[in-house]
């Protein structure tokens, strides 16, 4: 009888506990995704200059990266599971120059595309690390 009574709440507790382990916090997920998109942007820019993709392909890809990353600076501080202000500020400091590269990628030889790739890589590594 006791077993039957305990089964329901126990199952609920088990599901809640397992549920917590099944998913990441909203903050970890958001920064992890952003890190992956920065990495994709860096690879796209490098491939465009190495001649592996056309500039049309790169341009189309950057439109998608931009829509994936837009508004992240506003979301980040208020997300569930966000760490201390300093860490968030550090990420935001890296986000801005990287986002600049995503909005206006340097697809010509005349501009300094290597600096953009470096900014994207820095942001990617920091965001991926913050995402665990």
């Amino acid at each position: 009888m006791l077993r039957k009574r305990c089964a329901g709440p126990l199952l609920l507790v088990l599901l809640t506990v397992t549920g917590c382990q099944l998913t990441q916090s909203a903050f970890s997920r958001t920064v992890g995704n952003a890190g992956a998109v920065f990495s994709a942007a860096s690879t796209t820019l490098s491939y465009a200059h190495e001649g592996k993709i056309t500039s049309a392909y790169a341009q189309a890809s950057f439109v998608n990266y931009q829509s994936e990353l837009d508004g992240l600076d506003q979301q980040l501080p208020s997300q569930q599971g966000a760490p201390d202000k300093r860490t968030v500020q550090h990420l935001l400091d890296l986000y801005r120059p990287a986002m600049q590269a995503v909005i206006q990628p340097c697809l010509e030889e005349s501009c300094h595309w290597q600096a953009q790739v470096a900014a994207l890589n820095r942001a990617s590594q920091a965001f991926l690390m913050a995402g665990g």
């Binding site: 995704n33 992956a36 998109v37 990495s39 994709a40 796209t44 993709i53 392909y57 890809s61 998608n64």
Partner: peptide
């Protein structure tokens, strides 16, 4: 460390 979250990104592997 990409997640394949956009279609253009998936094509980079063929590139």
């Amino acid at each position: 460390n990409m997640q394949g979250s956009s279609l253009g990104e998936l094509g980079l592997s063929m590139a």
